[in-house]
Design a protein around this nucleic acid. Structure first.
Lengths: 210, 210
DNA sequence: TTCATCATGATCGAGTTTCGCGGAGTGTCC
DNA sequence: GGACACTCCGCGAAACTCGATCATGATGAA
């Protein structure tokens, strides 16, 4: 888990504490899927996790932090899955990499609890927004470093920016695809794919096998 | 005002009632700009509007409905502004039309109270989502009918769909542009423009003067 | 035309319920 | 024993209700 800044009140020390934390986050995610994150209450989280309310507040400073933590965990899981998929597959071009990323995104929208609702947390209106960092940008810079090391693309702020533009579009389009259809509207998913490819080719050039 | 389904509890009948409604919505929008829509309370809305809490609940069934109504009014205002701009200007091609739309969007993000926070309401996670209609799709079908009548484009579901794809991307990119910068990050605004043009040209063909 | 009447829309705000939040105290593990 | 994990219970604030009250404009008799 990365974003441990002020989201969590106490760092878990003992082993069972980690289990508690994940069970709280799982409970929160399940509840969000049912009632929406607007109507999520701390009591729901406690009840579903088989804990008392005080326990929730032991881990999270407030209700918003629960939401942020669910989002932050989604980012971590996503980057982990990216790493796993790179360990398993040998993608020839950067496009195949991005394409598989979209597959992962579709899978997350379809199967990961609460992902369709809060995604990487960029839909939450937090003020002040700390550090000018979005969930999308966290994923973008992670992917940027991979593309640089594997396909010899020119890195730097430009690449991260282009990837954030692409991910912002993909994210919005996939969210729309899953808005009314739990399996995902194929037309919007395809649109995300073609739009992302067209945009990235225009700024990165044709995909080349390395 | 269009979306009067179940957002409002009672249709305003007397003249002063309409004034009340707009003053409540104005108050809500101003409060949202200050504290964010998550922290908006019904008491804030009442106080700012110079009304009592009971009056708020006379017009809105609950706190969420206030948010939805602000979003719904934003859609109405946007389509009204589109109509006004068509009455005033003679755009040669459909692209000039879309381009001016993006200008209107930028202006709304920059100047319309609460717009940057809730936009057309698609960021709100409401369940159940009624009627499979998004704020973006409402705008899209409105613009579709205009494009058909003025530039002889083939209409139907296809055009509305393509426009919704485009508006979804534009909306997401503009939201990102205004996330940390009240005046709008120029790079993301430009990205919205080029991406929208590229996508729409690929599905509608080159812009032609009519 | 005038004006008292009155049904109903509009408003108020005290009261109720629910929820966010947290501290005091108890159990559990090393 | 000391640090940590957890429960119990209550305070304060926010969401929401409801009956009393005020305002409006249509009606009709003089």
């Amino acid at each position: 888990m990365s974003g441990s800044s002020t989201l969590l009140r106490n760092e878990p020390v003992q082993a069972r504490s980690n289990a508690r934390l994940t069970s709280l986050l799982d409970a929160a995610a399940a509840a969000i899927d049912e009632v929406g994150y607007e109507r999520l209450t701390t009591a729901m989280v406690a009840e579903r996790a088989g804990a008392s309310i005080g326990t929730v507040y032991r881990y999270f400073p407030d209700r918003i932090a629960v939401l942020q933590s669910v989002a932050s965990r989604a980012v971590d899981r996503f980057t982990d899955r990216i790493n796993d998929s790179f360990a398993a597959e040998q993608y020839e071009t950067w496009w195949e990499t991005i394409d598989s990323l979209i597959d992962q995104g579709v899978d997350a929208f379809a199967n990961e609890p609460a992902f369709a609702a809060i995604r990487f947390g960029d839909v939450l209106d937090l003020r002040p927004r700390e550090g000018h960092v979005t969930g999308n940008s966290r994923v973008a810079s992670h992917v940027a470093s991979i593309l640089v090391s594997r396909y010899g693309l020119a890195g730097g702020a430009g690449l991260s920016y282009h990837l954030e533009v692409a991910f912002t579009m993909i994210d919005a389009l996939l969210a729309r695809a899953f808005m009314f259809d739990a399996r995902g509207d194929a037309a919007f998913i395809d649109a995300a794919r073609t739009v992302a490819r067209t945009y990235l080719e225009s700024v990165l050039g044709e995909p080349q096998a390395r």
